[in-house]
Design a protein around this nucleic acid. Structure first.
Lengths: 223, 223
DNA sequence: TTCAAATAATAGTAATACTATCAAAAATAA
DNA sequence: TTATTTTTGATAGTATTACTATTATTTGAA
């Protein structure tokens, strides 16, 4: 049995909700494929239009620009991760185990085929690793942030910070440690793939290496 | 007395060495100002040409594209940091003090007016924080990396890793910890400026906060 | 079935990311 | 100093991107 996951993505990200039509859903699906394949810089609405047998004009009715599509995809991912955290952590009472599981999820061992096969999760993952920082490293970050488009990321980071504080109430930097975990999981996976000299991943097993690095440092910090 | 710092930047980054002419030097100087002011995405050769009272064609004779200018600037910065590390660490025998100083330098407390006032170091710093990941988060990273354009970054990271290993020879992830320090120093400073909820920097003093977070982080991991 | 909404097809504009040409100016070598 | 090479400035041009606008057609909901 499969479930259809649906998240309420912040309305300010889109002009028309892509979930509200078939072409809208196809748009997101193919955008994930294309951004993964071409990289965000080379990704254009024209190429996406071609892919979905439609026109640029149609896409522009859904999204102001390609940055908004990236935000939409990342928001969906963050909501998905939040959902995964909720589901997978609820039965676990031990805070140490919770942290271990969080790190496992951040290192992308969630790629099981449970839930929702609408979007290609492997592609989604590559996008998160290689493109997610481009969502916030923009000149108009202040304006964009006013629309709460980073709320799902902040919520997710907040949840991890809560577990950190539960595990060690005396630790002074739960939020910063939380974002460091998230961002470092992306960085180390990227580096181990493309710039391995920047890591200690001698066996080239990216996500497994990242997991062990993150687990080691989190517990050294919190114990 | 002031010194003129000169680093040998990898020849594959440029078509013609900007250090070899007045207009070339002005090009880099103004590129730093413009990238800082407009952000890398909005920065164009046309705008830079206008700024240096020249033409796009002239700039294209020095650099293939704007990504190469970014790489040039970052290479200069990494060489500069390497130089700073060498100079400031040579008198220090205590490895713990060395690590502390490294963290201080990574948190941008190097903005003294010693050495070289050619480039605006405050701007340079903002570029490193907000734009440096765009140098490697590109689709053609594999091709680009073949030209050794990230060597200064790898060397710098390697030096930090060496100090880490000297301080604690049993620690298993010196390189990954080193890059995590570098990248986290950028992230936390950016977040504390624009997305403060992602940090614990309640007093909004960016680089001082980053220093204390990283120092706590490193010594809990290594002690 | 009728009517509003969404889409496709097409056109067009301003800006970007280049490439090419050639004359003028500057640097350098004889 | 003049001659020669190199670099620059001025100009032009192309393909692509990032949009906006218009209208005819299709779809779908009342």
């Amino acid at each position: 049995m499969e479930f259809k996951l649906n998240f309420d993505i912040n309305e300010k990200i889109y002009l028309r909700n892509p979930e509200s039509s078939e072409i809208g859903k196809l748009m997101i699906k193919k955008a994930i494929d294309l951004i993964c394949e071409l990289g965000f810089e080379q990704f254009t609405f024209k190429k996406l239009a071609l892919e979905i047998n439609s026109t640029e004009a149609t896409i522009y009715r859904y999204f102001e620009n390609k940055h908004r599509i990236l935000l939409y995809i990342l928001n969906w991912y963050w909501c998905f991760m939040d959902f995964l955290f909720t589901v997978k952590l609820e039965n676990i009472s031990n805070d140490r185990e919770k942290l271990k599981l969080i790190i496992k999820l951040l290192s992308n061992e969630f790629l099981d085929n449970l839930y929702h096969n609408e979007y290609n999760k492997i592609y989604l993952n590559k996008i998160v690793i290689a493109e997610s920082s481009k969502a916030y490293l923009v000149k108009d970050i202040i304006e964009i942030n006013k629309n709460e488009v980073f709320k799902p990321y902040k919520d997710l980071s907040g949840k991890i910070a809560d577990v950190i504080s539960l595990y060690n109430p005396n630790y002074k930097f739960p939020r910063s440690l939380s974002t460091t975990l998230i961002e470092t999981s992306h960085n180390q996976q990227f580096f181990s793939m493309y710039l391995p000299k920047l890591t200690d991943d001698i066996h080239h097993n990216g996500s497994e290496f990242t997991r062990s690095f993150l687990e080691d440092f989190v517990f050294k910090i919190l114990d």
